[in-house]
Design a binder for these strands. Structure first.
Lengths: 242, 242
DNA sequence: CGTTCACTTGACTTGGCTCAATTCAAGTGG
DNA sequence: CCACTTGAATTGAGCCAAGTCAAGTGAACG
């Protein structure tokens, strides 16, 4: 990714670790400050358990969804089981927009996730919502363009480096402290198999790329799902861009 | 691609062969029946020569474009020359929508192409145009999802088979005569190198896949850019779906 | 002046070798 | 037990290098 010049990938929650803190599915009021929820009244609120389906590929698309808290994976499956993760959606991002009456991808939560859902028809009633959706669509397209380049033309190591860089928290350009120290703490919200399915690789290849980056001193493990990038600018060069 | 269930790839002109019939750049009134041009007045009309740039990645995005006639390739480049073709845009389709102020892809014509361009600002003034753009964005996203699955998880032969099936002309499901005969004539609007860059393969691998399909009797050459699919349902199975 | 032959050019095909990534099979460790 | 790592063997697709094919250019010659 052009890292800063292009659309940022929806940043996935940093704080709660994988599967940690699974609370009962209590419906709380949404945190408005956080996810820029539009004024339109949502059809409903829902809390989805970790690793469970929101909808499946081929299902009737009745609603679109806004992530309030948590994370959602969009994926597609081939009949023989091969899986491609299309996108990882975090707070403030929407999913479930399709051009047909059916969903073209499956959506499953990564951990416990709070969602707002809007009836498809009510989008056309709310101008604000329509503008918001259009903006999200444009951002998603830019991200999908970047991802097509990654899937079609990058090596395994470049893919993993790009993925890790996409996890570095940043708001308009890199953080000042990050630029100064050249070090970034990142939380890896996906398991190796999910990373593999996202990057079009095998689980083992992803694991080996992590290991190589660690051997080369670019990466240090805090745990297997939380790492430190010791040389951000070097890692950035490994992405194949610039 | 789910072939009929999912969003159809914008079909590229069938009739004019590659680079054939290059006429002087006369600006004619658009064929409304064909490309569903919105009532909003376009900022301008333009005719672009074959194989030339409409805009480049990184350029200021001032307009969005509608293809009236011809075909446009959207692509991204890595600094070392690796290229990924993102999409092939035909009549009635739009391109150049981005979420930032810059274009995230390059756009070049495949052959002589007539375009309508709309100033980015005037989109927000026209409700009809906004709806049209949103619809195109949704369709493009579905297509990009399919393409991510192809790039991430399909074999070389599956990719080429999928590509060939995407070229079969169809309007809501397959043609009746096509279903009866199980044979389809298709025109291949891209060169082997472009197909390779679209499918994330090398030119040679694409050529070998074509040759294998021909050896197996599934494909017959009329010329290198016009082929006959002799067994459409078999070819469909080779796509890895169903 | 028009036909022919030699040559060039660009797109595509094919062969052979190489290597990156997958697959299979044990591991380790929280 | 499940997620992850590591090693060894396998293979699909890439790269390099020739070779084919068709179309185009142009100089020579009857």
């Amino acid at each position: 990714m052009p890292l800063g010049t292009s659309t940022p990938i929806s940043r996935v929650d940093f704080a709660p670790h994988r599967e940690a803190g699974v609370r009962p599915a209590a419906v709380k009021p949404p945190d408005r400050a956080r996810c820029a929820e539009p004024a339109t009244k949502a059809t409903r609120r829902l809390t989805v358990a970790p690793r469970s389906s929101v909808f499946d590929e081929g299902e009737d698309a009745t609603s679109i969804y806004l992530v309030i808290e948590g994370a959602v994976l969009l994926s597609k499956l081939l009949p023989d089981g091969r899986r491609q993760i299309i996108e990882c959606i975090g707070p403030g991002d929407m999913f479930g927009m399709t051009s047909t009456t059916r969903h073209d991808v499956s959506a499953e939560t990564l951990r416990q996730t709070r969602l707002a859902s809007y009836d498809r028809r009510c989008i056309s009633e709310s101008y604000a919502l329509q503008v918001l959706v259009a903006e999200r669509l444009r951002a998603q397209i830019c991200h999908l363009h970047d991802h097509a380049l990654l899937l079609g033309r990058k090596s395994a190591l470049e893919r993993v480096a790009t993925f890790l860089m996409s996890l570095v928290p940043r708001r308009d350009g890199l953080d000042r402290t990050l630029i100064a120290t050249n070090i970034a703490q990142v939380c890896v919200p996906l398991r190796r198999q999910d990373i593999a399915d996202y990057l079009g690789l095998s689980l083992e290849t992803v694991s080996r790329a992590f290991s190589q980056l660690r051997r080369d001193g670019l990466l240090a493990y805090v745990r297997s799902d939380a790492v430190t990038i010791n040389d951000v600018s070097h890692m950035r060069r490994l992405c194949g861009e610039v």
